[in-house]
Amino acid sequence: MPPNHAPRRSRIVFHAPAARQIAKLTEAETHRLDRALVAVSLLPDIGELRRDVPLRDYRDETEGVRIIYFATALKTTVIAVYIEV
């Protein structure tokens, strides 16, 4: 019987604008963002696909976080292009 493994997570990479946004966050905001990033890394298709560009828009209303991102073809990497906390 094969061993039980945790779900495979995508690696998250931050585009330069998102990295600058993260650098300005407080510790509490970073904690809220971390929860949303875990959700996106586990389920890269969780965000709504935008019509105008090949990006996904994930909003966690509970945490007050928005992440605009795209995933690579095999969904092994998620590139965050915009962060709002």
Rank of each mutant, 00 (worst) to 15 (best):
M1S: 09
P3K: 05
P3L: 09
N4P: 08
N4Q: 10
H5F: 01
A6W: 02
P7Q: 08
R8S: 13
R8L: 15
R8V: 15
R9A: 15
R9V: 13
R9E: 15
S10H: 02
S10I: 05
R11W: 04
R11P: 01
R11D: 01
I12V: 15
I12L: 12
V13D: 04
V13E: 12
F14G: 00
A16L: 10
A16K: 00
P17G: 03
P17C: 07
A19H: 05
A19G: 00
A19F: 06
R20A: 04
R20S: 03
Q21V: 04
Q21P: 06
I22C: 00
I22P: 05
I22K: 01
A23Y: 06
K24M: 02
K24C: 05
L25Q: 01
L25F: 02
T26G: 07
T26P: 01
T26M: 00
E27R: 13
E27G: 09
A28N: 13
E29N: 10
E29F: 06
R32L: 12
R32M: 07
L33H: 02
D34E: 07
D34W: 14
R35P: 05
L37K: 12
L37P: 11
V38C: 04
A39F: 04
A39W: 02
V40I: 15
S41W: 00
S41R: 00
S41L: 07
S41A: 10
L42I: 07
P44R: 02
G47V: 06
E48F: 10
L49E: 09
L49W: 09
R50A: 03
R50T: 09
R51I: 02
D52Y: 11
D52Q: 11
V53Y: 04
P54I: 03
L55S: 11
L55I: 03
D57E: 08
D57R: 15
D57G: 09
Y58V: 05
R59S: 12
R59W: 07
R59N: 12
E61M: 06
T62V: 08
E63K: 01
G64C: 04
V65Q: 04
I67A: 09
I67D: 08
Y69Q: 14
F70S: 15
F70L: 14
F70Y: 14
T72D: 15
T72E: 14
A73M: 09
L74M: 11
L74V: 13
T76Y: 15
T76M: 13
T77K: 05
V78E: 03
V78M: 01
I79F: 13
I79T: 15
A80Q: 07
Y82Q: 14
I83L: 14
I83K: 14
E84H: 10
E84Q: 01
E84N: 06
